[in-house]
């Protein structure tokens, strides 16, 4: 059984790491979580990013946050990527599979997945 004692052990293990991490993140992944986003499937997309960032060991440089309505309901789930010195990238109609690809190719590999961006969606 999971117990609060186990949580205390995790705390001891994490204490130093969390302090070190402060101020080091540089990529922000923002997932739209308003009603339209949630209805379109934003919850699993958010979780795919949270789990993926953790699994890839990117917690020190990447944060995943949630936001309200971005105002483009027809394109939900919407995900925005902010990186210092780069233009914001907006991915639309996201799915878990697309999130995994964005994580691998864009966040890790540094190459925007053009086909999922809002610019491509508008062209189509």
């Amino acid at each position: 059984m999971k117990s609060l004692a186990e949580l205390a052990a995790i705390r001891e293990k994490m204490k130093d790491k969390v302090v070190l991490r402060e101020g080091t993140t540089n990529t922000r992944i923002v997932v739209g979580m308003a009603t339209c986003g949630i209805a379109a499937g934003a919850r699993p997309v958010l979780n795919a990013f949270v789990e993926g960032v953790d699994k890839e060991g990117l917690n020190d440089s990447v944060t995943v946050t949630q936001t309200g309505c971005i105002g483009i309901c027809q394109y939900e789930p919407v995900v925005e990527i902010f990186q210092p010195g780069k233009e914001k990238v907006t991915y639309v109609k996201m799915t878990v599979e697309k999130a995994e690809k964005v994580l691998k190719e864009h966040i890790k590999g540094g190459k925007v997945v053009e086909e999922y961006t809002i610019a491509s969606a508008k062209k189509a």
């Binding site: 999971k2 609060l4 186990e6 949580l7 205390a8 995790i10 705390r11 994490m14 204490k15 969390v18 302090v19 949270v50 789990e51 960032v53 953790d54 917690n59």
Partner: peptide
Amino acid sequence: RELRQVLGEEIPLNEAEIIRW
């Protein structure tokens, strides 16, 4: 609130490891 009591101030609840727990 119970989790926060154990974790103290310095570890936020949205740490990946805590969310997983």
